[in-house]
Design a protein around this nucleic acid. Structure first.
Lengths: 158, 158
DNA sequence: GAGGGGGTACTCGGATAAATAGTGTCCGAGTCAGTGTGG
DNA sequence: CCACACTGACTCGGACACTATTTATCCGAGTACCCCCTC
């Protein structure tokens, strides 16, 4: 999985604590990561409609929906793409004992097993929302943690 | 996920139908894939102890256990490695508002969500055995399918 | 003092290179089967 | 006829190139704010 997923999720969580848009540069220095590369991830989120982008002097990125309406799966699919990890190359239709194409009306057993596992993975990610993550952050580090981040994002210099 | 996982699984399924060892070359031409690269996957299975390798004239690969005792997860971890897809880089400990290390006794919320999803994925793959796959192949293409493959693997020329 | 126009600085967005993991290939080390020879 | 040693060919195993994906970077297009000028 792309490492940018982690960055994107952290950005979504901190964006729950602010109202206005936050520039990519600010998000990058908060997390001490490459601004240029983080921009790419945020663009992916924007293309997926999870965040809105605003240009100009007071521009930046902001969540488009309630944090409870954005799932972790949404972010993962936006950044990594919606394609499943396993792709069947139809080996059964190759070689000297190839299964004829007309017998291949359903996916092969291996593909079915992989698809089932992939569905379980996605279901687990779909059951967790950004709001859940933000709540857990508060539970882990105290209610003031996100508030401090919010203040730094909107106001502080350096 | 590495595409070699699919090849390895197909090999394991067909190996359930034969008694003696089968050379990698024979498995490769059955599936019409690169023999050299398939060898790499089979070596991984051998390192993991799922198959035994025998050298010499009548050598090859054979399953070491009952097909019902080998799970799809075993094969996936043997070929792709046991590492989870998501790796936390501890972003929370970086940047101007870094969380102090002594407060990071448990994984962060994002990592917990990813770990849970990964566990669900692995549980699904663990619940399917190679024997299950072989049985499904019989159900899909008729009981004679695996028998024909077995005969070709052990006897036929070209 | 209020409204409008222009400048400016800041933002995103996509196009462009380096690094890394995955894919594919090759040749050498090791080993078993078969064969020929000697007893 | 049996046992042994040898030959030979076939097997795996790891080391070596090539390609695709991921990672990282840069510069141009666009836009909202702010200042200044005019009325």
């Amino acid at each position: 999985m792309s490492g940018g997923v982690e960055w994107a999720l952290h950005c979504c969580v901190v964006l729950t604590s602010v109202d206005g848009p936050v520039p990519a540069t600010r998000l990058a220095e908060l997390h001490d990561v490459s601004a240029s590369y983080l921009a790419k991830q945020l663009q992916a989120l924007s293309r997926a409609g999870l965040v809105s982008s605003a240009q100009g002097k007071a521009g930046g990125y902001a969540l488009t929906r309630e944090p409870s309406a954005i799932t972790v799966l949404d972010v993962v699919e936006a950044v990594d793409g919606p394609a499943p990890a396993f792709t069947c190359t139809e080996i059964r239709q190759r070689g000297p004992l190839a299964t004829p194409a007309e017998s291949c009306t359903v996916p092969c057993a291996i593909t079915r097993a992989m698809t089932t596992a992939d569905a379980a993975w996605r279901a687990a990610l779909r059951s967790v929302s950004i709001a859940d993550l933000a709540r857990d952050v508060g539970a882990d580090y105290g209610p003031g943690a996100l508030r401090r981040i919010s203040g730094w994002l909107t106001g502080a210099e350096g």
